[in-house]
């Protein structure tokens, strides 16, 4: 029973840890499917986290916090669009720039506004998203097997967690069952064809980037308003890059993205749980190895040793109308 409880706990934290990855990964999916590489997921999440926690603390409302997070994150996404769509700049360079501006400005503004060494004030109960206890969760808790699964894994998360997982089928539907999704995929593969059909390539790509901004904003809000009761500097700590890795691992497909993020979240949860205790068969695994594993796996995948990751064909190339 102890082992079962331990497994439930690890899976529970797997869900919590994979939510920001999943949101950021789906965010990247929209922009990369539309042919815009986005290294700036990390930065957009970070400004989202900062804006969300600041606004929630100032206006005492979690919803205003979430709204601000999304707004600021979309603004950063539009800067990326302005550089890479309107001015046909290098998308990688623009993404790198956004990450730096985000990292620096959140610290400077946080220190200037709140004077707590780059932190935002600790959020009070009504200012963060609380866990939702599903009906009957407490009653059924003591039932073996089903009880803990229902009470710990399914119930007891915040609304953003359910939102993140609901975004998986929604994104699939948008991508493969709507006109917008079809055009978006087309613009990522062959923008000239979309242009010939009389559809604006730039406007489509801008819309895809707005979707990216919304999702990274929610991802940031989750970090600072659910996982942590406030913003801490550099709190994304490379999650945007892991999300990017997960996106490649998922071969740019929404359902695969969920599994990739759950896998990377599980590796994280397991490394926290193990913390130096030996594993059967392999013995003691250094925590650093577990931390590096998502990156190693992605490199191996990219090298084509487990399947082949083929990115959208027009990714990274600015579209120039023929004259």
């Amino acid at each position: 029973m102890d082992i079962f409880n331990a497994i439930i706990q690890v899976l529970d934290s797997t869900i919590r840890l994979s939510v920001p990855l999943l949101l950021a990964c789906l965010a990247g999916l929209y922009s990369e499917r539309a042919g815009i590489f986005d290294i700036g997921l990390e930065g957009k999440m970070l400004v989202g986290a900062f804006a969300g926690a600041s606004a929630a603390a100032v206006f005492h409302s979690a919803l205003i916090g979430l709204g601000t997070a999304v707004l600021i994150s979309v603004a950063f996404a539009l800067v990326h669009g302005f550089a890479s769509i309107t001015h046909r700049g290098n998308q990688i360079v623009s993404g790198v720039a956004i990450n730096f501006i985000a990292a620096g400005s959140t610290i400077i503004l946080g220190q200037a506004w709140f004077q707590q060494g780059g932190r935002t004030p600790a959020l009070q109960p009504g200012e963060r998203f609380e866990a939702i206890i599903w009906p009957g969760a407490d009653a059924i808790r003591d039932v073996p097997i089903i009880g803990p699964i229902y009470a710990e894994l399914i119930s007891g998360h915040s609304i953003l967690v359910y939102f993140a997982f609901a975004m998986v089928p929604f994104t699939w539907w948008v991508l493969f069952r709507t006109r917008f999704g079809l055009r978006m995929r087309a613009v990522g593969e062959n923008p000239a064809a979309v242009d010939t059909a009389g559809i604006s390539v730039a406007w489509l790509r801008y819309r895809a980037l707005i979707c990216t901004g919304i999702l990274t904003g929610v991802a940031g809000a989750y970090l600072s308003m659910v996982q942590n009761g406030g913003f801490v500097k550099d709190m994304t700590a490379g999650k945007g890059y892991i999300a990017l890795a997960a996106l490649i691992f998922a071969k740019w497909k929404p359902v695969n993205a969920m599994f990739a993020c759950l896998l990377f979240g599980f590796l994280d949860a397991a490394s926290i749980r193990l913390q130096g205790s030996p594993l059967p068969l392999v013995g003691k695994v250094p925590a650093q190895f577990m931390q590096a594993l998502p990156y190693v796996l992605t490199v191996i995948l990219l090298a084509g040793f487990i399947g082949k990751a083929i990115p959208p064909r027009a990714g990274g190339v600015p579209y120039v109308k023929e004259r």
Partner: peptide, 12 residues
């Protein structure tokens, strides 16, 4: 970041 943005991505 601003230098990378203006001298890199927005150089044109």
């Amino acid at each position: 970041g601003l230098v990378i943005l203006f001298a890199g991505a927005l150089e044109h």
